[in-house]
């Protein structure tokens, strides 16, 4: 099975991928389980990288696989399965973040009218990332806040590169842009992050 860190060795789809795809299209249940065994951890960790909260990440991981299962028949095979799953993952994560922001924006108005009290109390979203050691927690929180304030493309490229460890070429395939654009996005993202962190520490030291 090809994995996310192996996107470049392909004429879009390797043999194992093609065989698995056939079984998925024919709705073979064991194929679904295999797919989840192979990609579940990576999808979950990508979601964690974007959402920084394990409950949200699990929720979105399930949504990603539901989407994969539902749309496997319409997969055009112009990219590898992993690239396709990555695209779905990123889209779902961004949708989830947008929905959470919209929820936050309307929470105040809704609470004025006594609507939606339960949802208001359960609003997202404390950082709850199980992969972070305790002593790094404060720094990570500051860093993630800075990453959140980047533009969408910069944020995606930076997270895929630095949190997920994808190569520039892999990121280019997932984002459907050129490698040069990825380099430019990452350069700007790093520069912006440094400026934001410097400003933060100047204010808080």
């Amino acid at each position: 099975m090809a994995n996310f860190a192996n996107l470049e060795n392909k004429s879009y789809m390797d043999h194992a991928d093609a065989a698995l795809l056939e079984r998925l299209v024919s709705k073979e249940e064991r194929a679904f389980r295999e797919l989840m065994d192979d990609y579940g951890k990576r999808v979950y960790n990508t979601c964690l990288g974007f959402l920084k909260n394990e409950e949200d990440a699990e929720d979105v991981t399930q949504e990603v696989f539901i989407e994969v299962f539902k749309s496997i028949a319409s997969f055009e095979r112009k990219s590898s399965v992993s690239t396709w799953i990555y695209r779905i993952t990123i889209t779902k994560c961004l949708d989830h973040q947008k929905a959470a922001k919209a929820k936050k924006r309307f929470a105040f108005v809704q609470s004025l009218f006594g609507l939606n009290d339960e949802e208001h109390r359960a609003l997202p979203n404390d950082m709850k990332h199980p992969g972070i050691v305790l002593e790094d927690k404060e720094r990570v929180k500051i860093l993630f806040q800075a990453i959140e304030s980047l533009g969408e493309n910069q944020r995606i490229a930076f997270t895929l590169c630095n949190v997920e460890g994808l190569t520039y070429k892999e990121i280019a395939e997932v984002m459907e842009i050129s490698v040069a654009s990825v380099e430019s996005l990452l350069f700007r993202a790093k520069k912006n992050l440094q400026t934001k962190l410097e400003n933060y520490y100047k204010k808080n030291k």
């Binding site: 679904f32 389980r33 989840m36 065994d37 579940g40 951890k41 999808v43 979950y44 960790n45 964690l48 990288g49 394990e54 699990e58 991981t61 399930q62 696989f65 539901i66 990332h129 199980p130 992969g131 972070i132 050691v133 790094d136 720094r139 990570v140 500051i142 860093l143 630095n162 949190v163 992050l193 440094q194 962190l197």
Partner: peptide, 23 residues
């Protein structure tokens, strides 16, 4: 030091019942 923290974020295992829950 803050940027270096990224290197120390470890990969996490998803819920063992991810498949069952998704289905």
């Amino acid at each position: 030091a803050t940027l270096e923290v990224l290197q120390r974020i470890s990969q996490v295992e998803p819920n063992a019942f991810l498949y069952e829950k998704t289905m």
